[in-house]
C-alpha cells in the first residue's frame, strides 16, 4: 500500500539497517521500525536529500522552522549523532528514539539524561553548565529573573544534588537526585512511542507495512 519503495532502494540509504535486526535491539516491533523509516525519509529529505538527518533538518522537524536555535534541541541532536559526524543515520535515529520508549530501562534513561546535561562531557554536571542551561531556558520562554534569583536557584539545586559539595554533580549524585525528584525524568519518556503506528498515522499511511 502507499508509495512503494523496494528493499534494494532502501538499502541505498546510509545507515539503513534491517528492520528485523533493529527491532531485535529495541522496544519497537518490525512494523514500527518500518514506519519509523518512512518518518526518517521524510525528515532526512527535507533540506538535503542525502538519506541523513542534519541539524537543520532536525530543527525543521521539531519546530517547523530552521531559525529557532535551541540549546536543548542541539544537545539532543548531539546525543542522537552517536558517530559524531554531524548527521544522524537511520540506525542511530531508531536506537536514540528507543531511549525515550516507555519500556526502555530507567537506569539507562538516567544515564542519557546525565549526558544530556553534562554539556562539556567532563563526566560531571557543573554549576556553570546548569547556569548556562537555566539562562537559555529563561531566554527561550522570555522570562526574566534577576541574577540574584538565578544564583539562589543554583545554590538550592546544588545543596540538594551535590551531596559531597564539591561544586559539581557526578553520576551517582545525579541518580540519587532524580530518584528523589522523579518528575525530572518525565522528559526521558515519550508515552506515544508505545503506539506510534496509531498515534501518528500520517507517516505510517505511506508505509508498505501490512501488519499494522
Amino acid at each position: 500500500m502507499g508509495c512503494f519503495q523496494s528493499t534494494a532502494k532502501r538499502r541505498q540509504h546510509p545507515g539503513y539497517e534491517d528492520p528485523v535486526h533493529l527491532a531485535s535491539q529495541t522496544a519497537f516491533s518490525v512494523s514500527e521500525v518500518e514506519a519509523l523509516f518512512e518518518l526518517f525519509k521524510s525528515i532526512s529529505g527535507s533540506v538535503i536529500d542525502d538519506g541523513l538527518i542534519n541539524k537543520e533538518e532536525f530543527q525543521l522537524a521539531l519546530f517547523k522552522n530552521t531559525r529557532k536555535e535551541n540549546l536543548f534541541a542541539n544537545r539532543i541532536f548531539d546525543l542522537f549523532d552517536v558517530k559524531k559526524r554531524g548527521v544522524i543515520d537511520f540506525g542511530d535515529f531508531v536506537r536514540a528514539l528507543n531511549v525515550f520508549h516507555p519500556n526502555f530501562p530507567m537506569e539507562e534513561k538516567i544515564d542519557f539524561s546525565f549526558k544530556l546535561y553534562d554539556m562539556d562531557n567532563t563526566g560531571f554536571i557543573e554549576r556553570k553548565e546548569v547556569k548556562q542551561m537555566l539562562i537559555a531556558l529563561l531566554s527561550e520562554s522570555e522570562m526574566r529573573l534577576s541574577d540574584e534569583t538565578i544564583e539562589t536557584i543554583l545554590d538550592k539545586t546544588f545543596s540538594d544534588a551535590d551531596v559531597n559539595q564539591d561544586g559539581k554533580i557526578d553520576r551517582a549524585e545525579w541518580e540519587n537526585f532524580v530518584s528523589r525528584n522523579p518528575s525530572l525524568m518525565k522528559i526521558m519518556t515519550l508515552p506515544y512511542l508505545k503506539d506510534i503506528t496509531t498515534t501518528f498515522p500520517s507517516f505510517v499511511f505511506h508505509s508498505e507495512v501490512d501488519d499494522i
Binding site: F72, A73, L134
Partner: peptide, 24 residues
Amino acid sequence: TNFNAFDIISLSSGFDLSGLFEDN
C-alpha cells in the same frame, strides 16, 4: 524558591520530540 534548576530547564520546548512525528 522551591524550584530546582532542572525543574525549570526541563520545561524547554527542545525536549519535546513530538514535532518529529508531525507532518513536515
